[in-house]
Design a protein around this nucleic acid. Structure first.
Length: 560
RNA sequence: GCGCCCAUGGCUCAGCUGGAUAGAGCGCCGGACUACGAAUCCGGAUGUCGGAGGUUCGAAUCCUCCUGGGCGCGCCA
């Protein structure tokens, strides 16, 4: 059974205190009470937690904030004896000083939950789809895709750990002009290989992988297609190439530790005239109009800067038309929340997609679009030029092969996703203090090493009930305990804000406090009870490091 | 030109959804292994939070304008 967090218990205490005040007529409110916020303090001289509720209430209660704080403080009924002291400070903060032994009681969760420690149930089983990567199968994944891939993957992990029922999906854009370009590119290369003189237009894909696929087709089918440049031939080359490339994409993702529940093909949407029927539906709802042989969606109704074409003059639906159908499909599958992870270069596309789902009657809030800024790939501080079409790019696979999966993943998680990221290959490769992933992994390995030593000396990791926590009196130990017990809140916050980077920052903090503690104090000593208590503590740290790194998809080495 | 995002120590970035004296890492200088792993630790300097107004008990955070950067503005995806 998970213990309620101290924060939640304080919120509850304040809630009933407020109720008492109102019932006893200590003050009156002109409006319904706002939700009560309790925050961890930055400075321990302000206690462990603080609430600003008195200041928030001041204007509607028409009393000075400090007076409100006094009244609230008096009416707190601390039946569980959580508190040493409630202090009124500054302009009207209520500062809570928690009894020290309360913290150690929270460590019971680490012992009883083990690998599950840190999980929560804010999701309550709600179904969430996370759609990410979704690169066209026109070439291998490159470094920019890698960042979105990791962020989407870890976000999905965090949501799973928060009680959501998560579905990971990759949308394959395999139905547009770019695909025809791909087919044509391979066809032309194929013809060239067979000795034909061919001209390559500018918009053709030129990477080596195009040539590889052309060679493969040549080996398999000889010159079967040499005199055919008709639509059917192009379609064959397109399908063949797309399938090869998609397989490679799947392999690369797998090597990066990323596995999808579903690869959803854009072509699915066209089956049974799905897109056409959707457009009819929208037309019936009055959002579609015709102008000069094209069909327009009135996205300006939803704040877009101009209306968008859904069916071109040549009669073909646009990518956008399919995308509305796709989002409808998502909601029809019963997801409560749909999350799209996009490259930030698509941000201008957001209003029309939000418009699309609203036109269909879905709630705007049920779609969350997370933008991931593009990555600048550097080597020794110098930028590497990249362009998919010209074939000059560093693939995701090359990056993983060069710097390693752990370092690559961790590097992508060290910044908030909407912030630009410089990814320096040489820096990411360094096994040094410039590379935070090793800092955290080293803490884990160090603890494992310590435990090995302790076991050699016939210690065992004590259970919670066998541990004498009164021996953990050092300030560093109290600090460590507090940071450990904060871990579940970090996950909850990361899940609510869809911000995976919070975990890496937390891990760096935890590892830092541990390393410092380690250098200052000996865990395994002649003092049996003390050693056991400290072993329990460091093993709890190990557990948190293990659980958090698992969520990040980063390994937890026992030796380095 | 219009729209979106960003601007925080020398550099790279956090800042928990408006809280108290704005924090890390790197870099720089000086120290710590006959002690559970030195990929570690300890000590030392650095800020008009791009600028100007506004909102309120309180602003790096919210609103307006300006400056400087990134991206977008296809019947491409």
């Amino acid at each position: 059974m998970m213990a309620a967090s101290v924060k939640k218990r304080l919120v509850a205490l304040l809630g009933s205190s407020l109720k008492n005040c109102l019932e006893k007529g200590k003050f009156e409110l002109a409006a319904p009470p706002p939700s009560i916020e309790v925050e961890m303090t930055k400075d321990t001289s302000h206690g462990d937690y603080a609430s600003n509720i008195a200041m928030v209430l001041a204007s509607q209660a028409r009393k000075p904030p400090r007076q409100i704080a006094e009244l609230l403080g008096e009416q707190i009924e601390d039946r569980d004896h959580l508190l040493d002291e409630v202090e009124i400070a500054g302009p009207g903060f209520l500062n809570f000083f928690i009894k020290e032994h309360i913290w150690t009681t929270l460590l019971q969760d680490v012992d009883s939950l083990q690998e599950q420690f840190g999980t929560n149930n804010i999701g309550q089983g709600k179904r969430v789809q996370v759609e990410f990567v979704s690169a066209n199968p026109t070439g291998p994944l490159h470094i920019g895709h890698a960042r979105g891939a990791v962020i989407g993957d870890v976000m999905a992990n965090i949501l799973t750990a928060s009680g959501y029922n998560v579905h990971r999906e990759y949308y394959i854009n395999d139905a547009g002009n770019q695909m025809n370009n791909l087919g044509t590119s391979v066809l032309l290369r194929y013809l060239e290989l067979l000795g034909k003189t061919v001209e390559f237009p500018d918009n053709i894909y030129q990477g080596d992988y195009i040539r590889d696929i052309a060679e493969q087709i040549m080996e398999k089918y000889g010159d079967t297609y040499v005199n055919r440049d008709d639509d059917e031939a192009v379609r064959f080359f397109t399908d063949y190439a797309a399938s090869m490339i998609l397989d490679e994409i799947k392999n690369d993702l797998k090597a990066f530790g990323i596995v999808f529940d579903e690869y959803f093909s854009e072509r699915e949407l066209y089956k049974d005239d799905g897109v056409a029927r959707l457009l009819e539906d929208l037309k019936a709802r009055g959002f579609i109009y015709r102008e000069e042989d094209t069909l327009w969606f009135r996205t300006t109704d939803f704040g877009d800067e101009k209306d968008r074409v859904v069916v071109r003059k040549n009669g073909e639906p646009t990518y956008f038309a399919a995308d509305i159908a796709y989002h409808k499909n998502k909601f029809d599958r019963g997801f409560d929340t749909v999350i799209d992870v996009w490259g930030a270069d698509h941000h201008g596309y957001m209003p029309r997609v939000y418009g699309g789902i609203q036109a269909l009657g879905f709630n705007k809030d049920s779609l969350k679009i997370v933008l991931v800024q593009l990555v600048n790939l550097l080597r020794d501080g110098k930028p590497l030029a990249m362009s998919t079409r010209s074939g000059e790019f560093v693939t995701m696979k090359e990056v993983i092969d060069e710097v390693g999966r752990d370092a690559a993943r961790y590097n992508f998680l060290m910044r908030r996703s909407d912030s630009h990221l410089d990814f320096d290959l040489e820096l990411a490769k360094k096994q040094s203090n410039e590379n935070p992933v090793y800092y955290v992994q080293y803490a884990h390995a160090r603890i494992c090493s310590m435990i090995r030593l302790a076991v050699d000396r016939n210690f065992s990791i004590p259970r919670y009930d066998e541990t004498d926590f009164s021996r953990l009196t050092l300030p560093e130990e109290v600090m460590l305990i507090k940071v450990i017990t904060r871990y579940p809140e970090v996950i909850e916050g990361a899940a609510l804000s869809l911000e995976p980077h919070r975990l890496t920052f937390y891990l760096n903090e935890l590892a830092g406090i541990f390393h410092s503690y380690y250098n200052k104090h000996k865990v395994v000593s002649d003092d049996l009870a003390l050693s056991k208590a400290r072993l329990f503590l460091v093993n709890s740290i190990r557990m948190v490091l293990n659980n958090a790194l698992n969520l990040l998809g980063v390994s937890t080495p026992e030796k380095m």
